[in-house]
Simulated assay, not measured.
Amino acid sequence: MPPTRYNADEVTRRIERLQETYEEVHVSRRRDDPMDEFDELRGYAEEGYIGGAYAWVVRRPEQAHDLTESMPDDAFGDQERVLLGMGRGSNHWGPSGGGLEGFDPDEPGSGETYEDAAVREVEEETGVECEVHGPVTVDRVVVANPEGEDEVHLAYVIFGGRYTGGSIDVQPGELNGAAWFAALPDEIHPNVEFWPEYWEARRDDS
């Protein structure tokens, strides 16, 4: 039998939609070995797992909440800040997000878009409402069966985002914490180490 490329066509279709929708979409490609058993990942793919979406949410100074009466007036000065979370079992800060929901492999195009998933996951994990304005990175991952030729295809998308409302109220089963950072912490997740330069270059677009 020929090898099965789980969800390859769906991942391709969704990446092509992103490329058609937004002016600049950088797609990286890599092949990975499964972190655990390939059969477990294959099961997730058969149930509709096709990757995840994340948002780098920026809050402008004028969007900061009013101070309480007990705070001194000179504490009001604020800066542009980005929302970062620290996942359970992690010691690194990174943008919030998670897996897409509702995709049925028997119904191409079903379920959430990557944009919808990013917005939903940020609010579920942190209590913060946002909108996204385009992908900054699209990471297409092919996970190969080390004992055969089957593959699972996934895509992970990080969007630029804008704060629209809400305040931090973390989902404790998902995060150890979340905070608004004016300067990025040293413990930034390795997958987003490129963000300091990106953020500085795109501040006016936030």
Rank of each mutant, 00 (worst) to 15 (best):
D104R: 08
I168V: 15
P146E: 08
A53I: 08
D106M: 10
A155H: 05
Y54E: 08
D169Q: 14
G102P: 04
P72Q: 10
L83H: 11
L83E: 07
C130E: 04
S167H: 12
V132H: 08
Q171L: 11
G97S: 12
G87K: 10
G160V: 00
Y49I: 10
E46G: 07
G87F: 15
V57M: 10
W56C: 01
H65T: 03
E149Q: 13
G160W: 04
V58D: 01
V132Q: 06
A179Y: 05
G77P: 00
F76N: 03
V141M: 01
G51K: 08
M86G: 00
E46C: 03
E101R: 14
F159I: 09
E151V: 06
E121N: 13
A117E: 04
D169N: 14
G165T: 10
A155P: 04
W93S: 08
E80C: 10
N145G: 02
P172E: 14
L83M: 05
G87T: 06
S70G: 08
D116M: 11
M86K: 13
I158N: 14
A178V: 00
Q63N: 06
G148N: 06
W93Y: 15
L83T: 02
C130M: 12
Y54P: 00
D104C: 05
A45I: 05
E147M: 03
G97D: 07
V128W: 01
A45Y: 02
H65D: 10
D150H: 05
D106F: 04
S90V: 03
Q79E: 15
V122S: 05
D169V: 02
G98P: 04
V138C: 08
D73C: 01
G52K: 02
V136Y: 11
R140W: 05
R120W: 11
G127K: 06
V143K: 01
A117N: 02
S110C: 08
D66K: 03
A155D: 08
G134M: 03
E107P: 00
P95H: 13
E121D: 13
R60K: 14
P95E: 10
G52V: 05
V128L: 08
R140H: 14
A64D: 00
A178S: 05
E115K: 03
R60F: 01
S70K: 12
G111Q: 02
G99M: 09
T113Y: 09
G165I: 12
A179E: 15
E69T: 13
E151D: 12
D104T: 09
D139G: 00
S110E: 00
D116G: 01
V57R: 03
Y54M: 12
V143I: 15
T126F: 01
S96V: 11
